[in-house]
């Protein structure tokens, strides 16, 4: 993504899966588009992108995502094993003077090629996924799709992010969890909205996600989905940690019904549009909408 003056990037993330990241990011994007803002929605959940189910974008371009991995030049290789020592991921090993490469495990760091004393390695390209672009209701939708059996989601996520940059506002639908693909999705965002649910599982995974964004130093706030069910522990935790809750969506069966039909909440349940508008206002009308990075009291 290239930096523009007023561009703001909001990443929607969560420690726990199935909390409503896609619901929230697609509805936020649609509210912005309906307000006449230029908005891009990046579906960075490249193992199972699903924003398209709700926004049904017209895909107009598709391009491959390639990564580099080492290939052995047999007549130069002495089987010394330096490459295997360099590799953090066991993507290249040397057994009985034979070099074995496991492309699926390679993180494309280039270390083995750099350190090979015989210059017996060269980097070659292979495809691990695609990036698709399209539009829907005034939203520029960009989604990544990791090839089946591939592991390097971060490369595809990076491809999605590189394709963005035309709009004033970018909404990122991140994968669940707190591992590398999530970090790759949220690390350049101006703000992270952490979605959770008021259950012990939701709380446990929220704590992990809060730890992650604090480590990254990105301002954040919390959204609670199905806010009127479960226990009050998530709210209590947010109070204790001075984390702002800027969106609460009730547990309404009509939302679940709309979701299962692939419909947008704000289009079919108009009374909920205000929640998303308000959430965005909280974000845009304040200099620092949280909005905090937590313990350091920012």
């Amino acid at each position: 993504m290239t930096a523009a003056n007023n561009r703001r990037t909001i990443a929607v993330a969560s420690g726990k899966g199935g909390t409503g990241k896609t619901t929230i990011s697609t509805n936020l994007a649609l509210v912005l588009a309906q307000q006449g803002k230029s908005v891009e929605l990046l579906d960075c959940d490249v193992e199972e992108p699903n924003c398209h189910i709700f926004l049904k974008p017209q895909i107009h371009s598709s391009k491959p995502v390639n990564v580099l991995y080492p290939s052995v030049i047999q007549d130069k290789c002495t089987g010394c094993g330096v490459c295997a020592q360099v590799c953090e991921y066991s993507a290249i090993v040397v057994v009985k003077n034979k070099v074995l490469v496991f492309p699926g495990l390679c993180h494309s760091c280039g270390g083995c090629t750099l350190f090979c004393p015989e210059e017996a390695l060269e980097e070659v390209e292979r495809q691990v996924g695609i990036v698709e672009e399209g539009s829907s209701s005034g939203i520029h939708v960009i989604q990544g799709l990791l090839d089946i059996t591939e592991l390097m989601s971060a490369a595809v996520i990076n491809g999605v992010k590189k394709s963005a940059g035309l709009s004033d506002i970018v909404i990122i639908d991140s994968p669940p969890g707190t591992s590398c693909p999530v970090i790759e999705s949220v690390k350049d965002a101006d703000f992270v909205l952490l979605v959770t649910e008021p259950t012990p599982f939701g709380l446990n995974d929220l704590k992990l996600a809060v730890g992650m964004v604090r480590q990254l130093g990105i301002p954040f706030a919390v959204a609670i989905n199905r806010c009127d069910m479960g226990d009050g522990e998530v709210q209590r935790y947010c109070d204790d940690e001075h984390i702002r809750i800027i969106l609460e969506i009730p547990d309404d069966i009509r939302i679940a019904q709309a979701y299962s039909r692939g419909e947008m909440i704000i289009n079919v349940l108009h009374e909920y549009k205000g929640l998303f508008v308000q959430c965005l206002e909280t974000f845009f009308n304040q200099k620092d909408p949280g909005l905090n990075t937590g313990q350091d009291g920012q």
Partner: peptide, 15 residues
Amino acid sequence: NAGGGAGIQTAQMLS
């Protein structure tokens, strides 16, 4: 406790 490639490392160790 390897992050990944545990089987590969194990096989290499046994070799």
